[in-house]
Design a protein around this nucleic acid. Sequence first.
DNA 1: TACACGTGGAT
DNA 2: TATCCAAGTGT
Length: 380
Amino acid sequence: MTDQTDTTPLSSSLLAWYDKNGRDLPWRVRGAHPNPYLVWVSEIMLQQTTVQTVIPYFYRFMDKFPTIESLANADIEDVLLMWQGLGYYTRARKLYECAKTIVADYGGKFPETYAELLKLPGIGPYTAASISSLAFDKPEAVVDGNVIRVIARLYSMTEPVDQIKQEIVKKAQQLMPKERAADYTSAIMDLGATVCTPKNPKCKSCPFNSDCCALKEGTVDEIPIIVKLEKVKKSGPLFWIENERGEVFIRKRTETGLLSGLTEFPWSADDVSVGKKEPEFPFAGGWTFTNKSVKHVFTHIQLSLDIYKTEVSGKEEKSSDFKDFKTKTGGIFVSKENFKDYPFSTLMKKVIAEMEKPDVKKNKKSGSNKKTENKQLSDF
DNA sequence: TACACGTGGAT
DNA sequence: TATCCAAGTGT
């Protein structure tokens, strides 16, 4: 961490570029004193998430939880409600844990050093460095996707990123100047986000263009090398269960794993390579296929769910078959009007939207009906 | 060390 | 339409 130099020609040209081209964002106004709470919340939201997506969530979150104390004293359910649709829900859980820790163990004041920040829930090497530099102006170099791209190109590093991460971290720290750490951190990320972009980088307006090895060698478009994982395809049934009052059966997912802690309708899915199976209904009843299905793509799974529906009569609701199911899955019936009180994933929002549509007795794959509808609408 | 973990926008 | 990929962390 003592590797950084006084201002180098590279870092001063980057700072000069930032003074002219840097962006003001809701959590970081240039020239204003940073608020560590805003910096922290924004950094967590921005993990693997675009600025454009984060901005409306950030405003809503700050409206609801304006201080770290208000967050620490909240219910986790309300935190998840604010996070619904943002993805990577473990972030919300860790954010909440972290707020409680900071209020309880640090008197509500953020620690300022990389080492202390790194101990906190949900704060890894990137976020520890970003809070330390952005909020407290300490010369800790951040290494995120932007910085990896800028540095890998600057030094024409052609090995897969996973293998050269440590080398990149070292070079990032060497570039970090002792002065203006917060501005420098903002600058290198803004550069990656707006100039040294993955596709169609604007090398002509880059402050590093006379030093960039990849530009000299014509390899900018091939760097960095990122090895990606294959998505597994899964499919299965989703069970839409209504009672006599038109309430729908929902349940809460476990605290870990996929969509942890969110609300869902019961569903299951298997790897399609095993072959498509007939659905195993969770209890006996008048199940019908709705002719509806939802598709959703996660980071690592390509999912398709067929929606099956049944209505449980008051008598059936009291049957041991249904009671066993209810005990096993741990859910309740709620009215559709009350869905807003539960955190649903985007996947489940798709299911709700699909079930709100009028029934269509057609083969979805034909697509011809949709075109007809559009035509009729535009004709009016 | 790999892999799990969401989502929406750009191309 | 398919693929990429965005201010990563936890295990």
